[in-house]
Design a binder for these strands. Structure first.
Length: 915
DNA sequence: CTTAATGCGTA
DNA sequence: GTACGCATTAAGG
């Protein structure tokens, strides 16, 4: 945020042309046929700009009719341009009228172009040291960028400062005119050097700085292109002049005298009515709501989006007849790429029955194909068999791209009908996640609100909620049809907004294209295959725990002298701290005496009751979460447990797992291990678990480039032992278990962005000692310290950090004035590149493993689970050794780091043994 | 019936 | 001190 409000100079003409060419805006017109797409586009852009810069002083600038000084310089200027189409021309006057009625100052100066007026105003602002933002879709304006002048393309929300210009064009803003002159411009008919494109222009300017420099050295340039340059020398000054935006246009008013006026709501209302601008009319009637500071803050994270998709008529069709279906199938095939969605009876993909399909090929052009609505007097629908037989080829066609929202679900459902979804082209959930993993939840309703400013029909709106909620097959087809068609429609529109955003960043795009999207079918296969659970073993364990819990309860009640609920912290407080008069060690944030684990641990040394409570808590949790629950989650059909892996949940890029969560199965306690024993291999198979050893520390070594750390890993040392030797300044062989434990705590702590305070607590040592350890660590591994400081700084500067592969994690709290929150965000900034890179790596490994499995096509090997740094397989015992060896190799070679990547394996009859 | 707070399982 | 999901209780409607 700049201190005084910036001037926002809007290149209205460039937006007008761009909006006119946006396909889905071209459909817009009033009922009597007056086109309004370009008007809508420009006004939407303006609305978004206002939201981004609530304090900005907006000045609208348009080209005037007729010739300009450039035509005097060069009669051929823009001679190749076709005349303005009538359906655009007729939108100009209404747009001007609306903008005037809105109260914006508007400049239309004859004899010069909008660019020149903007250049002049920007120059005036800069002279006064005022900030200026130029809103334009025209890249030529890059020549105006300075320390005080930035560009924003409000249609794509890309901003550009001096560094941005260098990044985008490869030359500085002050070289842009030279750059444009060299290249010339076909559309504007500006001559340049034949065959000189951006690459050549940048090359020359990098070497010779300016156009004059290039011309002076023209003799040195070899080949045909050198000849072309020499042939153009005469012309180049003219090209330069034509490409130069004026900054000294004579204006009637000075910048300071240009002021906005009050909106003329009556005129606006009549104009909005005349041109049927319903959304603006609604805004007007609601009283315009100023954008909040919070909105502005998120907008500045360079991730807020421009809703251009509003006010689009939607034409939703419900397909009942075979000829209608055939027509749609032709349309879908011709489209080459369509949005699609399934409607089913359940969120559980194993149990879900298909109720209908929906598609969209253009925004607003969508259809719903009902097949399984079975309420009383439901209209007759096409049969499932007919529909699937016609759709199977389309859905399995690699070359026919599908756009979906969470396509993994649809793929899983279709799999139940023997359809293997292929041509998974885009998934809007993953697009949103790769673009910004923390901005919203990535469900369709949230995305539509955020990115399209559109409120969708929610499932609850048509199905009801709570126990009375209907399943989709019970819902009235008309209602269901609108909902379903909208789903496909909105998915398509979201894709049209999100994809261009994602494409702006090559790295983010690559995370989507090379990691997340290909991982989708891999996860789908793992989910479908499921894991085998020994229910009898778990039930047995449940019984045992139940008995033990009863014993504990009786004992606890005896000590307390009364009956109470052991799992109620509140009742426990009363018993422990009031009735038993046990001293209060720690209080909860709200001031109540804490009964947290660590408190009870300490009290357990002196009192019997806390010890019982601890055991009770542990066992009760184990029983309810795992031993009772897991057997209930076995699918009746497959006899296995099918989790859901969520690909768009975590901020860092990890997967998460639910229903059940297979990523938090106990491992440490004895009782916990029993649960892993229940994850068994099928007959004649083994469970193989392969996990990455110290992956996050290895990544820290890679990212920090610290020689000591790199060396320790290169030599295959026990990293905690090596660290201990360094910190305590002793020989490797003299490292005791205690030393190693301390070093391990430091190593882990560093990954979490820990402070000396945290370390002291972890190790139970004084703060000063902890600080000494850390100082010593950083002294021995200075690269790590530098890396941490740089990461922190980077996070502060750009508001996000990146993984090795370009996954981006935004940290909105990094700008918080609340010290604690800011600190927490900084710790997250330290952790995210390491945790996130580890997530990227195992995802890449899963892709490599899956690729190999696909080639082998051997049903005796299945990848069944992922637990962050570990992959679990079921492998037939005949081939288990060789396959495991191969899998370890694939995981080791999944990526190349500056340190070796080591995967370790275990083989057993169950998951516990395999560890 | 939903939500927040607490506690605890994993990497 | 990072990142999650789930069970439970208690409070709000």
């Amino acid at each position: 945020m700049t201190q005084s409000s910036p001037y926002i100079l809007v290149d209205g003409s460039s937006y007008l042309f761009r909006a006119y060419h946006v396909p889905y805006l071209q459909a817009l017109s009033t009922a009597d046929g007056h086109p309004t797409g370009a008007i809508t586009g420009v006004l939407n852009m303006l609305r978004s700009l206002n939201k981004d810069y609530p304090d900005g002083k907006v000045i609208m600038v348009f080209d005037a009719k007729g010739k300009t000084f450039r035509n005097d310089l060069y009669p051929e200027y823009k001679a190749n341009r076709p005349p303005m189409p009538d359906d655009l021309r007729c939108q100009i006057a209404p747009l001007h009228n609306i903008i005037r009625a809105m109260g914006y100052p508007m400049l239309v100066i004859e004899g010069v172009e909008a660019d020149d007026v903007i250049g002049t105003l920007a120059e005036q602002a800069s002279a006064q040291g005022l900030e200026t933002v130029i809103s334009t879709g025209d890249k030529d304006m890059a020549q105006l960028v300075t320390e005080h002048v930035t560009l924003i393309n409000t249609m794509t929300n890309v901003t550009m400062d001096v560094d941005g210009v260098v990044e985008k064009f490869g030359v500085r803003p002050d070289q842009i005119i030279d750059y444009l002159a060299l290249m010339g411009d076909k559309v504007d008919n500006i001559p340049g050097v034949q065959k000189c494109g951006p690459k050549t222009a940048v090359k020359w300017l990098t070497e010779y700085e300016t156009l004059d420099g290039v011309v002076a050295n023209a003799d040195k340039i070899k080949g045909k292109i050198g000849e072309n340059l020499r042939a153009a020398v005469e012309q180049l000054p003219l090209s330069y002049e034509l490409a130069t935006i004026k900054t000294d246009v004579e204006l009637e008013k000075n910048l300071a005298d240009i002021e906005a006026s009050e909106p003329d709501t009556e005129t606006l209302r009549s104009l909005y009515e005349e041109f049927e601008l319903k959304r603006l009319l609604a805004d007007l009637n609601a009283g315009s709501v100023p954008a909040t500071q919070e909105d502005a803050a998120t907008a500045n994270d360079a991730e807020e989006l421009t809703p251009l998709n509003q006010d689009i008529p939607s034409n939703y069709q419900i397909i009942y007849r075979e000829d209608e279906l055939d027509e749609w199938i032709v349309k879908l095939i011709k489209s080459g790429c369509f949005a699609f969605d399934t409607e089913t009876t359940s969120l559980n993909y194993m149990q879900a029955k298909l109720v209908g399909l929906s598609f969209a090929i253009e925004p607003g052009e969508a259809a719903y194909l009902p097949i399984g609505h079975d309420y009383d007097d439901a209209p007759e629908q096409l049969s499932l068999e007919l529909v699937l037989s016609k759709f199977k080829p389309l859905l399995e066609d690699e070359t026919l791209l599908k756009i979906g929202q969470n396509l993994k679900y649809d793929a899983n459902v279709l799999n139940n009908y023997d359809i293997t979804l292929a041509g998974i082209g885009f998934d809007t959930m993953l697009e949103s996640y790769c673009f910004n993993s923390v901005a919203t939840r990535h469900n369709m309703d949230a995305l539509a609100e955020k990115y399209l400013d559109y409120k969708t029909v929610h499932f609850e709106d048509i199905a009801g909620k709570g126990v009375k909620q209907m399943t989709f097959n019970q819902i009235d087809i008309d209602k269901a049809g609108h909902y379903a068609a909208e789903d496909a429609d909105i998915t398509l529109r979201l894709h049209q907004v999100l994809w261009p955003k994602l494409e702006k960043s090559e790295k983010q795009c690559s995370v989507f294209t090379d990691i997340e999207l290909p991982l989708l079918p891999v996860l789908a296969r793992m989910e479908q295959h499921g894991v085998l659970i020994d229910a009898d073993l778990l039930n047995e364990q449940s019984q045992y725990i139940a008995t033990r819990l009863d014993e504990i309860e009786v004992a606890a009640h005896n000590i307390a002298g009364k009956s109470f609920n052991l799992s109620s912290p509140k009742q426990l407080q009363t018993i422990l701290f009031e009735e038993q008069q046990i001293p209060v060690i720690k209080k909860t944030p709200k001031g109540a005496p804490s009964t947290a684990e660590e408190v009870l641990q300490e009290l357990a040394l002196d009192y019997p009751l806390p010890k019982l409570i601890l055991e009770h808590r542990g066992l009760a949790k184990l029983k309810s979460t795992y031993t009772d629950k897991l057997p209930l989650m076995i699918d009746g059909q497959s006899g296995r447990v099918h989790t859901s892996y969520h690909q768009a949940v975590t901020a860092t890029g990890r997967l998460s797992s639910t229903d059940p969560n297979l990523q938090n199965i106990p491992i440490r306690s004895e009782e916990g291990k029993k649960i892993r024993q229940a994850f068994v291999a099928p007959d004649n198979h083994k469970i193989v678990a392969i996990d990455y050893s110290q992956i996050e520390l290895r990544i820290m070594a890679h990212l920090s480039n610290d020689p000591g750390l790199l060396n320790a890993f290169a030599q295959g040392r026990d990293i905690h032992q090596a660290t201990a030797a360094e910190i305590f300044n002793i020989e490797l062989d003299d490292v005791t278990n205690d030393h190693r434990r301390s070093a391990k705590a430091i190593n882990f702590g560093l990954i979490y962005g820990m402070s000396a305070f945290g370390l002291s607590k972890q190790l139970g040592i004084p703060r000063g000692r902890a600080q000494d350890y850390m100082d010593k660590y950083f002294e021995r591994y200075p690269g790590v310290l530098t890396y941490m400081e740089e990461t922190r700084q980077l996070a502060n500067e750009q508001g996000y950090v990146e993984t090795l592969y370009g996954r981006r994690l935004f940290l909105p709290e990094i700008k918080s004035r609340n010290g604690a929150r800011k600190k927490a965000a900084e710790r997250a900034a330290i952790n995210a590149p390491m945790q996130g890179t580890a997530a990227d790596i195992i995802k890449k490994a899963m892709l490599a493993v899956d690729a190999w499995l696909t080639v082998e096509n051997d049903p005796r090997v299945k990848m069944t689970m992922q637990v962050h740094d570990e992959l679990i397989f079921e492998i037939h015992e005949d081939i288990v050794d060789e396959v495991t060896k191969k899998l370890v190799q694939i995981m080791n070679d999944a990526v190349e780091l500056k340190v070796p990547l080591i995967a370790e394996f275990g083989i057993g009859d169950n998951w516990q043994q395999a560890h």
